[in-house]
Each structure stands twice: as structure tokens, then as C-alpha cells.
Design a protein around this nucleic acid. Structure first.
Length: 647
RNA sequence: GCCGGCGUAGCACAGCGGUAGUGCAAUCGAUUCGUAAUCGAUAGGUCGCGAGUUCGAUUCUCGCCGCCGGCACCA
């Protein structure tokens, strides 16, 4: 006699076990039409599942977030059926829903290409139009293995064999097509609708392991309706427009070339942006009690052996060659250098915590396939720092780092920051006892900083200690890892660092490694994409372009340029023999934030027209007023009394 | 590193077994024109690099390099 409790608190009683579909019908024909699946006591299930005992029940309709995931999952099944119909001999593997869509990995000698998409999509529409019911069947392990062995689906057989012993094994069929699947699914393929699109193909390793066979993955996107699909496609276009590689070229910030893969050639404007960022960071760190140092780029192999890098990091290290016996390596990290500075002279506990900052340029031999514009390079500059302290100071110093980091991100308009905690990796130095203490200390710091909402990445720590990672979410919802904070009980001792404690004895300091922007290169790329190239005024490489309407205004325009430059603004000119109608769009395109325009009238009156691009509004002001206003706007957020919010 | 795609003028792209074209930019000239692209002329390419096939290769084949999308790896 199941009693079903609905979300509004009402109940329905049934004489015998009932399916969700029956319950929906009992409630009303509208719901019966709209219900796609159900949640029974918090578990998502097929509508056709039977409820035999008292339960609370919620129906899933197209509007619920769960429906979107099911549309995508069902769509993956339909994709697989379509592919197997069109390309006999193709083996299926897995096809999960993912953010914005789904994929399915196939095994086939000949990989798929986007040219195959129209035929596959047409077949998918056909299957959806058929509206086959999704039918669930629970089978024994032997039965499942037998079925897929007969079908020649060796990947599915492997999956079944690896399922835990107590796992219920279910098959889902739509028409004649069967897949191993946990479910749940919607009622029929017709519930998927028409708002889907295959987007790309890619190779992917079976089960993500490079030693396994390469599968051909087809990605698709699927939505509730055409409007949502269109919005998503528009978002993709928007992301493409913001691509920092494209904007970097358009804005003349930097370039790459084949002789130096993964290494940036910074142009004057890009370097101005870069150095504006480092200037800002220098001020913030000085305020926070850091002292800046600089250490060698190339050091003897022996040092890297002692630090542990030679053992744990050599694959990513560049070695040098010279007419000398000794082997030198380009630094992949700044920490060993920082420790050498700490080691000079006898340190006292009274000096701790000692904070050394270094804008160190490190080189890492990244896999070629990982390179991606400024986001992933082989040579990059870290806003690195090493805090030498006692074990008792770890928590307080870590809290300071976290606070500084979040405060800095706010200055750039990043309010949405996630934190990840990564614990001991397999490849590591130091005893388990030391790792226990390091991890506990870092967790304590999180607690002390009032941060309870963080995710844990198992085994992702640095080889010398656990780490926190700070992840920014940009204007169009993408996540970027930037800052990091690592607690290190190992390296200072390995490199012989010590201080004299209160007791007159030598002690090994603990070291906090931290970077806030992380990689300056990457952070610059993130800023470009976050702002779509319209950088906040204080960061814009070219802040003002002075443009003339007629040549008669040239002398006044030159005076305006001089006055703006005297006020510390980055100014360029557009004295071309072009109409103002032409100059305006050119500078909008170049992402110049302010256009200062002088015609004959302004020249005569000592005034200037400011136009903040890409807007259409103009203000006409006396030159001195305009200069003062712009100079105030150009103040970096840490120096400005009224903080300038980033876009 | 792996799978697939791509590489033609400064940029965006077209083209094709008979040694290259369009638009924008550039240069020169005319125009001095008040807020989203003035007109005309000129110049610009060892078609990524190297081999091979061919009477002939930018075009076909192979190798290498780089880039793009994923995978794997990561700041």
C-alpha cells in the first residue's frame, strides 16, 4: 500500500506497487505529459520504475536542471545508436553528459571527422522522431558479459568485468539498440527534442590512460530548446572573440613564433601591461612586508639534486650546454634560489617570518600539446615569494597570504574565487609524519581564514608539500587557476637552511611558497579574456589617443598630448589625414579606452572632447579639467581613494 | 607526448598538376572633411621547411617544424 508524498506535502495512496507514470496520470493529464523522470526519496529514477513502498516523490519536467542532464545523456545514447547504424563495426565505450553537452567515445579504425556530422545528425533526428521507449532491464553479470561478447563490444565487456561485485547491472534499450547504462533515462527518444548539435571530434585515451588505445570522441551540445542552443552557440562565438591570442595580435601586445614554441615575444604595449601588473604587485607586497630579491636563472645540477628537483622534476627541466664539464639547469622554480639568499649569514628567530619576493622567470619543458597562448607556456614569470617562518607561525602567515590574495583579485574585479586543497602526491620527498603536519597546518590556516568551502584534490600537491590553489571565474564563466600557497617542511632542510632559535640551537625553518597572480603571462591572458580586451583604464597599454579633425588643430593637439603625458598618462596620437568618422571605429577596434578629439573650435577655446570608447557619449571640457579627470581615473586601485572597479 | 585538422602577402581568406588572387592594412597622390570605415593609383608572396612522384608541384605522397581542437600533463 505505498503512500506517495509529493513536494507540496500532499499524499496519494495506491493499492499496489505503481510506476511513476501511473502516479503522474493519477494526478493529472498535464503532469502525465510533462513528467520525464522522477526523484524517489532523493534518487533519480525512470518514470517507468515501480514504487512498492512509501516514498516521497518529485517529478522531473523539462524545466528542472536534472532534465537538461538527462537530455544530454539520452542524446549520447542516440548518437551511439546513429553511429553504429551508419558505421558498422564501430565499438561503443562510454558517453556521459558533461557541462553544456555530452560526448561518446567510439573505437573505430578510421577516426570520425566533422564531415561525418551531417549524416550522423540526420540519423539522430530519425531516431528521435521514432520516439522509441527507453527500456531498462536488470541482468546478471554473466548475462551482461555474454550479451556484449556476442556483440563484439570488448570495451563494454571490460567495463562490466570491472564493476564492483554488488553493483546492479542494468541495460537500456531504445528500439533494437542496447547499451550498458546505469540510467536513468527519459521516457522516449522523442523527449530529447531538436536542440542539439554535434560540435567536434577528438582523440581520447580509453579510460584516460595514455597506454590504452586511442578512441574517437564525438562531442555534442544539447539543450531544452532552440533558444537555449542558440544562446550557447552565441556564447561560444563570444568566447572566440575574447580569445587572448586573437586580441593580443589585434592589440599588438605580443606574438609567438616557431623558433621559440611556448615563449612570449612581448611588444611594447603588452610589456607595458605586464609591467603595470608587476608594479602593482610590488606595491602590494611591500605593504605586506615582503622584500624583493632576484636569483640566478641557471644553476648547477648539484643544487637541483639537493632540492629534489633533479629526481622529481627533471622531465620538465631544460639543461644547458657549454664548453664546460658542469651541467647547469634553467630554473623551473624559484625556491632553491630563494633559500640561498636566506642562507647567507646567520639567521635569528627574531628575523622570522622573513618574506622574500621574486619576479622570477622560470622555464619548464611542457608537453607540446599543452601549449596554449599565454595560458600555458614554457617560459613564464611568477610573482613568487617564500616566507621563512617557524612551525608556530605557519597558520598566521598563511592567513595573511590568503587575505592578500583575495584582496588583490578583488582589485581586478574577480569576486568569485574558489579554493582547492591538494594533498600529498605519489612522487614526493619527506616522511609521512612531516606530510601529516604540513597538511594539518594548511587546513588549520584555511579554518583560521574563515574558509570552509573548498574542494580537495587528492594527490595533487607539490612534491615537497601540500598546496592551496586559487581559481578565478571569469566574465563568461570559465575557471582559471592562478595563485598557489604551499607549505614546505622539506626543502629548507634539504638545502641546509637554518636559523638560531630562542634556545640558542639551530633550527630548520618552514617555508611557505606562494604566488598570487601565479604566472604573470597567464594572468595577463586571463585579464584580456575577462575584459574582452577592454582593460580597466589604469591597465590599458594605450590610455588615450589624441585625434584631430582638421590640421588647424594640430598645435593645440600637440599641447594636449604633452599635458596628458606630463600627468603620467599613456598617450598616442592619430593625426592622420582621415575623417573623424574613420578614426573613431579604428580606435574602438584597437580597444583604446579614451579618445580625446580636437577640432578647430576646441583648438581655439583650449578645450577637448573626450569620448570613452566604445560608448557614443562625449564630454567637452577645458583641457586642464580633462587631464585632471583622466589622471584621477588612471590611478591604480591600491593608490586610489575611490577604488576603480574593474569591468 | 597521443588522436584529428590546419599552415598561401602585415592581417582575414579564396584558389589550383601548367610557377598565384580578393578585402583590409601599407606606400604615393587628391581631399581638411565635426564623431562607427573619403576617392584614386602603386607596391607587396622562394604558397611553413625538406625530400619524393611528375616533362612540370603552391596543388599529389612521405618526413620534419609550428599552430588549432581535444586527450594526457599543468602555473
Amino acid at each position: 500500500m505505498p503512500v506517495i508524498t509529493l513536494p507540496d506535502g500532499s499524499t496519494r495512496q495506491f493499492d499496489a506497487a505503481v510506476t511513476g507514470a501511473t502516479v503522474a496520470e493519477a494526478i493529472g493529464p498535464g503532469l502525465a505529459r510533462a513528467a520525464l523522470a522522477m526523484e524517489v526519496d532523493g534518487r533519480l529514477m525512470d518514470l517507468s520504475a515501480e514504487i512498492g513502498a512509501d516514498a516521497s516523490l518529485r517529478f522531473i519536467t523539462r524545466r528542472d536542471p536534472e532534465a537538461l542532464e538527462m537530455i544530454r545523456h539520452d542524446c549520447a545514447h542516440v548518437l551511439a545508436e546513429a553511429v553504429q547504424e551508419l558505421f558498422p563495426g564501430t565499438q561503443v565505450t562510454i558517453g556521459p553528459p558533461i557541462e553544456h553537452g555530452f560526448y561518446y567515445d567510439f573505437h573505430r579504425n578510421e577516426p570520425f571527422t566533422p564531415e561525418d556530422f551531417p549524416a550522423i545528425e540526420a540519423k539522430m533526428r530519425e531516431i528521435i522522431a521514432r520516439g522509441d521507449r527507453f527500456v531498462r532491464r536488470v541482468v546478471s553479470r554473466a548475462e551482461a558479459v555474454d550479451l556484449f561478447v556476442r556483440k563484439g563490444e570488448r570495451f563494454k565487456v571490460e567495463l562490466i568485468r570491472d564493476l564492483p561485485g554488488d553493483q546492479v547491472i542494468s541495460l537500456y534499450s531504445q528500439g533494437d539498440w542496447v547499451d550498458l547504462c546505469r540510467g536513468p533515462h527519459m521516457r522516449t527518444t522523442a523527449d530529447i527534442g531538436a536542440a542539439f548539435k554535434l560540435t567536434k571530434v577528438a582523440g581520447a585515451y580509453w579510460r584516460g590512460k595514455p597506454e590504452n588505445p586511442v578512441l574517437s570522441r564525438i562531442y555534442g551540445t544539447a539543450w531544452r530548446d532552440q533558444k537555449e542552443l542558440d544562446a550557447h552557440l552565441t556564447m561560444l562565438e563570444e568566447a572566440e572573440k575574447r580569445d587572448h591570442r586573437r586580441l593580443g595580435q589585434a592589440m599588438d601586445l605580443f606574438h609567438f613564433q616557431p623558433e621559440a614554441p611556448g615563449a612570449v615575444f612581448w611588444h611594447p604595449r603588452g610589456w607595458k601591461l605586464f609591467s603595470t601588473l608587476t608594479d602593482y604587485m610590488r606595491r602590494r607586497q611591500e605593504d605586506a612586508g615582503y622584500q624583493e630579491i632576484n636569483t640566478p636563472d641557471i644553476m648547477d645540477r648539484a643544487l637541483w639534486e639537493k632540492s629534489g628537483h633533479w629526481d622529481k622534476f627533471r622531465d620538465a627541466m631544460y639543461l644547458t650546454e657549454a664548453k664546460e664539464e658542469r651541467v647547469f639547469a634553467l630554473k623551473p622554480m624559484n625556491c632553491p634560489g630563494g633559500i640561498q639568499v636566506f642562507k647567507q649569514g646567520l639567521r635569528s628567530y627574531r628575523e622570522l617570518p622573513l618574506k622574500f619576493g621574486e619576479f622570477g622567470k622560470v622555464h619548464r619543458f611542457e608537453p607540446s600539446g599543452a601549449l596554449h597562448g599565454l595560458m600555458r607556456v614554457r617560459g613564464f614569470t611568477q610573482d613568487d615569494a617564500h616566507v621563512f617562518c617557524t612551525e608556530a607561525q605557519i597558520e598566521e602567515e598563511s592567513v595573511k597570504v590568503i587575505d592578500l590574495c583575495l584582496s588583490i583579485y578583488r582589485d581586478f574585479g574577480f569576486e568569485d574565487v574558489r579554493i582547492k586543497f591538494s594533498d600529498r602526491p605519489e612522487k614526493r620527498v619527506g616522511s609521512d609524519e612531516i606530510w601529516d603536519r604540513s597538511e594539518a597546518a594548511l587546513k588549520g590556516a584555511l579554518r583560521a581564514a574563515g574558509i570552509h568551502d573548498y574542494s580537495v584534490n587528492k594527490g595533487e600537491g607539490a612534491f615537497y608539500g601540500p598546496k592551496l590553489e586559487f581559481v578565478l571565474r571569469d566574465a563568461i564563466g570559465r575557471d582559471w587557476q592562478c595563485g598557489t600557497l604551499q607549505v614546505d617542511f622539506n626543502m629548507p632542510g634539504a638545502l641546509g637552511a637554518s636559523y638560531i632559535g630562542e634556545d640558542g640551537q639551530r633550527h630548520v625553518p618552514v617555508m611557505l611558497h606562494r604566488a598570487l597572480f601565479g604566472s604573470l603571462e597567464r594572468f595577463t591572458g586571463i585579464l584580456i579574456e575577462h575584459t574582452a580586451g577592454r582593460l580597466p583604464f589604469w591597465l590599458a597599454p594605450v590610455q588615450v589617443v589624441v585625434a584631430t579633425i582638421v590640421d588647424d588643430a594640430l598645435p593645440a593637439a600637440r599641447q594636449a598630448v604633452a599635458a596628458l603625458r606630463r600627468a603620467g598618462l599613456r598617450v598616442e596620437t592619430d593625426f592622420r589625414n582621415e575623417k573623424i568618422n574613420r578614426k573613431v571605429p579604428d580606435h574602438i577596434e584597437a580597444r583604446v579606452p579614451v579618445l580625446a578629439i580636437l577640432g578647430r573650435r576646441e583648438a581655439e577655446e583650449g578645450r577637448v572632447v573626450l569620448r570613452r570608447l566604445p560608448g557614443r557619449e562625449q564630454q567637452e571640457l577645458p583641457l586642464a579639467v580633462a587631464v585632471a579627470q583622466l589622471a584621477a581615473d588612471a590611478m591604480p586601485p591600491d593608490l586610489s581613494t575611490t577604488p576603480v572597479a574593474a569591468e
